[in-house]
């Protein structure tokens, strides 16, 4: 039950990360998506992958995205 609920939350967060206009909010939603995916890995009995998922993508990926947003600007530009 909780597994299907978390899958639904992951899909909603992924769509929200694409659709939101502010880039900094998109990066933070992406970090939340990584946390949900890590919990899913833990429920599928892979705690090793869950640790790596949290530490690499949710911490370092978010940091690198924040640096990139800080250099390019927060507004989404559509050409």
């Amino acid at each position: 039950m909780i597994f299907e609920f978390l899958l639904l939350v992951a899909i909603i967060l992924a769509i929200a990360a694409v659709e939101v206009k502010d880039m900094l909010y998109a990066v933070l939603i992406l970090g939340g998506l990584d946390l949900v995916v890590a919990v899913l890995f833990y429920l599928m009995a892979a705690p090793d992958i869950a640790i790596t998922q949290i530490v690499v993508t949710a911490v370092f990926g978010t940091f690198i995205y924040v640096v990139a947003v800080n250099r390019t600007g927060r507004k989404e530009v559509i050409e």
Binding site: P47, D48, A50, I51, T52, V55, V56, V59, F60, F63
Partner: peptide, 25 residues
């Protein structure tokens, strides 16, 4: 702890090293 317990519990050299680097972050 994560890196030293890597052979008997979840974890290992790579996640332990990234946790150490996140302290510097």
């Amino acid at each position: 702890y994560v890196s030293l317990h890597g052979h008997i519990s979840p974890g290992g050299g790579f996640p332990g090293g990234v946790i150490l680097a996140s302290a510097f972050l």
